[in-house]
Design a protein around this nucleic acid. Structure first.
Lengths: 356, 356
DNA sequence: GGCAATATTGCATCCGCATGCAATCCGGAA
DNA sequence: TTCCGGATTGCATGCGGATGCAATATTGCC
């Protein structure tokens, strides 16, 4: 059987005469070290038993050959790819990039690789699901919505999923989210306390769950406070539409509202610019404008947007943990973790008079 | 042998009594369809020969079982993972997220999956390389620099690499880049033509090749035009350091320069804010400030940064193609593709008087 | 020093699919 | 109807590593 190993390796060698040498396999290392392939395999595993002597011999041989365990082959036999799919959609908040990098780092620290899927729009999930399934990802972290049927498919395959900033009401799924409604309530309270009575709402793309949440949050609170003068227009989260929306708002109601609630900071910035540029309005003297997210740009001195900052770091950390836990223990039941944002009082909105 | 297949499948079944059914394999499909596993394999391949009748039977069985070819197993046998590694570093331009999404989409369209690696700093490449190698990616697209030794390792393994916005002088590597130096020359020309004689340069992180390129580009052109009053400070591409750098600049030279050249738009914005806020300088009346990249924020009305826009779409498209071509044909020699940016004349810099 | 308990090591086999080769099938030409 | 060439199909095997089991080497303990 030693002979067998030798033959195997020899055959491998001759097949690649001068051209690109094949990458070394555990058999090659085993042969060079004069041990069995299993031994090599064990040396490169965590909890496996191998004597010091063995470890040294194998490692020496491995170094000499530039051997690296083949994660693909390992995945095939262990039924664990150690990869998770991360799904984001393109026309989403400018703020997701940050999320993406942090997520990747969190996963990376725990030995999990990220297979990235970027959707053109939140709806394009079909082919992506097929891909994720074919690559046998161990889990899915998504910032895009899936249809109930897709969800069922994934459940059938026992692939844990964690939703990022989205969730399903009628279904048990794991999700990490920032309490959008709460945040909007804070903003509305702030604005109402400052004495504003007429409102404009700039919502995001129709298929964005987050945008819907924010809108309803704001509308509910406004209704509760007895404010009825509310006009809504919708954009796509981008700067340009922020500007357009502001103009539409004015056109729609004839005059500027006292306050504008934008679905995100970028559109809020668009509104501010449009208000200043085309309508000669002073922010916040003539009009208050608030956003959501707490992205970097919201802090630019020219805008200093009043907003609610999402605790991105804690959220990504939590999402990664949650997914990994469910990969390691599939029995865990779904869980929703909602994080509160932080109200950032910038200078784009009038402050409430009573500073209670 | 029909019997054999039956046994195999039967064994599989019994192993998973009630618990999670195992995912269907090509054997399961073969059995249900009453054909051989090879047949199933062929039906799910592109150029393979299979009769219409066969195709139908197999597909019917596959549908019934929810079968999906296992890309991991396929990768093992074909020696092609159909995955590429994309490496980005965190503290890099805010502008990369856009790049990332576009790259992913380009790859996706061509049937290639993206394994994402996010570095804390551009230097943290060591472990990442190990990972990429273990996962047997077919190619690497990197927006971070590798050491010559790492490069050698990758070359030994015959993994094609394409560098994004970085390259090596003394070595043949494929890269896609925006001509940073050219862009800076344009900006400098613009500023000098407008009559500016004293300059401040805000460079990026020391380990950013792009930043170095931009700085040298600017310095060279300034020298060529006989401008010697140049002060340099360095930041990290972020807004905050943009502000700090501007202050440092003034402190260093006692008075504001007539023009500031920032290594990217975000820092340019920081400079503008600091100039306005703390030094009561009017932009561009008292001072001209230019950036680089042409990110979204540069177009915000409050800044309207004069800058050079990188043709991101063409660059990502080109990078993806270049890598895929080299995966399909490893003999292709390295190639550098340099794209020209587009000068965007915003209002953050004085215009040249002669409008030639 | 002798023996049981424990730690190492090797063997054989499997993970799920692709593919060269041989066997079989089919249609058309003679 | 018979024969031939191309199209289909099945068989056997391999990709690179993990792992249960059995054989062997070590160790500790009395």
């Amino acid at each position: 059987m030693k002979t067998l190993a030798v033959n195997k390796a020899a055959k491998t060698m001759e097949k690649n005469g001068k051209g690109a040498r094949k990458r070394a396999t555990s058999y090659d290392v085993a042969e060079l070290a004069g041990v069995s392939q299993s031994a090599v395999s064990r040396v490169f595993q965590d909890g496996a038993s191998a004597s010091k002597e063995m470890r040294n011999r194998v490692m020496a041989a491995a170094d000499k050959l530039g051997y690296r365990p083949n994660a693909i082959a390992r995945g095939l036999i262990t039924q664990r790819s150690n990869m998770v799919a991360v799904v984001i959609s393109k026309m989403t908040n400018l703020y997701y990039p940050e999320v993406l990098v942090q997520l990747t780092q969190h996963f990376s620290e725990r030995g999990v690789r990220v297979l990235l899927f970027a959707l053109e729009r939140e709806g394009d999930t079909a082919t992506v699901i097929e891909q994720m399934l074919q690559y046998r990802v161990d889990g899915i972290l998504t910032a895009a919505m899936f249809t109930p049927e897709q969800l069922r498919t994934l459940q059938n395959e026992d692939i844990p999923i964690v939703f990022y900033n989205r969730t399903l009401k009628d279904q048990l799924v794991s999700s990490v989210l920032c309490d959008q409604q709460e945040g909007e309530r804070w903003l509305v309270d702030e604005l109402v306390n400052a004495g504003h009575k007429s409102f404009g709402i700039v919502e995001g793309p129709a298929d964005s769950v987050v945008s819907i949440e924010r809108k309803t949050g704001a509308l509910n609170e406004l209704a509760e406070l007895g404010i009825t003068d509310v006009t809504t227009v919708s954009g796509d989260y981008g700067y340009e539409t922020g500007k357009e929306c502001f103009a539409k708002l004015i056109q729609k109601r004839g005059s500027p509202p006292e306050a504008v609630i934008a679905a995100n900071d970028v559109m809020a910035i668009g509104c501010i610019d449009e208000a200043r540029e085309h309508f000669r309005l002073k922010v916040p003297d003539d009009i208050s404008i608030v956003g959501f997210d707490g992205v970097g740009q919201a802090r630019y001195a020219a805008y200093d947007v009043t907003t609610v900052r999402q605790p991105v770091h804690r959220m990504t950390e939590s999402a990664a943990s949650m997914l990994i836990e469910r990969i390691e223990n599939p029995e865990l039941s779904p869980e929703k973790r909602a994080f509160s944002g932080t109200l950032i009082r910038g200078s784009s909105a009038r402050l409430r008079s009573d500073d209670s």
